[in-house]
């Protein structure tokens, strides 16, 4: 082993030591942002746990904004309560629809209770704890003489045993349907300035040139049309106001998971009956609204500079290489002999 190996190894060690100090100092940062864990703050923390749970949003803020009717389309409003984790209680409130039942569909299409009706008291439905985790479809249907209203949404449960929900999504549950293609998976979500596709179909037939309306809690109303295959590409508008970003959706631990509701709705008249279906969910602000690419590249470059000395061909390198290359060659020759 040459002295230069020791020198270069020392550079690596110094750099590694610096990074180690950085990482091991992380526990010290507990002091700055940590707060006594009272139940209320922890509840807010739990509501923001995970991207999909974050899509349910800050309920108190939402409830205030809910006092203003932002859409007339049918939808399901989700509310979370309880202690969190496995004791979390999820209730659904149908809005702009008076269903006779609220149904849940599991991603395990072969399960005996794949399709079940939730306990419903004509005001609130209580989501039970499904047998498997992953994505579940929730749906409410109101049938009138000349009108059928459907409100649907997808709920994600962070448990093991989830199946691929694609087959369940494509099962016919109602006449007029809007089906995400695909639904954002874990660690992903609908966000402003992103395009997401949905399938619009009637009795399993894709609807071409079907008008689909997007209405958001932030006040946007946008129309889209499906293509020949019934696929509509929805561009989520960048309608989060700056004041909302700075607002009280910031938990005391600094979590700033912004969220707003949306409903994607279609209307179709068939055989003198009007079908109105709404697929609702929540979306967040633009991915880069609270991120800086410039600073990110800057810190990356800083790290690169830290390793740059390792790339230098030192004079000692060349001398030692001249000494060791024949030595290795000699060893090789001996072995071959």
């Amino acid at each position: 082993m040459t002295s230069n190996d020791i020198i270069s190894g020392g550079v690596i060690i110094k750099s590694t030591a610096l990074l180690t100090v950085v990482f091991l100092s992380l526990p010290l940062l507990l002091v700055a942002p940590s707060y006594a864990a009272d139940a209320e703050q922890h509840q807010a923390h739990m509501q923001h746990a995970g991207d999909h749970e974050g899509m349910a949003g800050n309920e108190r803020k939402r409830n205030m904004r809910e006092m203003v009717q932002w859409t007339s389309f049918p939808r399901l409003k989700m509310m979370m309560g309880g202690e969190g984790g496995e004791h979390k209680q999820v209730t659904l409130m149908p809005k702009n629809i008076a269903p006779s039942s609220v149904d849940a569909y599991s991603n395990d299409i072969h399960a005996a209770n794949m399709h079940r009706q939730l306990p419903y008291d004509l005001v609130l439905a209580t989501l039970d704890k499904p047998a498997t985790g992953g994505f579940h479809w929730l749906s409410a249907r109101e049938e009138q003489v000349d009108k059928v209203l459907v409100a649907s949404m997808v709920y994600y449960m962070s448990e093991r045993g989830s199946k691929d929900p694609t087959a369940m999504f494509m099962l016919q549950k109602n006449s007029l349907e809007i089906i995400p293609q695909p639904f954002p998976r874990e660690h992903s979500r609908y966000r402003a300035n992103e395009d997401w596709q949905f399938l619009v179909r009637f009795n399993r037939w894709p609807l071409a040139q079907q008008k689909v309306m997007l209405e958001t809690q932030n006040g946007s109303k946008v129309e889209f049309n499906s293509d020949a295959k019934g696929i509509v590409t929805v561009h989520f508008p960048s309608d989060f106001k700056a004041s909302a970003r700075q607002g009280d959706m910031v938990a005391r631990n600094g979590d700033r998971r912004q969220s707003s509701d949306f409903v994607l709705a279609a209307e179709l008249v068939n055989a003198k009956k009007t079908y109105i279906t709404g697929f609702n969910g929540s979306y967040g602000p633009d991915a880069f609204s609270q991120r800086s690419l410039v600073l990110g590249l800057g810190f990356t470059f800083f790290g690169m500079l830290g390793a740059a000395p390792l790339l230098r061909n030192r004079k000692a390198d060349k001398k030692s290489a001249m000494k060791t290359a024949p030595a290795i060659s000699t060893q090789t020759n001996k072995k071959e002999a």
Partner: peptide
């Protein structure tokens, strides 16, 4: 992911450390 979080001080610090580590590793 290479864009650092600016919404919280701790998130910014963690992302900055991650980016610096990443830059160091790919050159090293």
């Amino acid at each position: 992911q290479i864009a650092v979080q600016t919404s919280s001080g701790l998130g910014f610090f963690l992302n900055a450390a991650s980016n610096a580590l990443f830059g160091f590793v790919i050159i090293a």
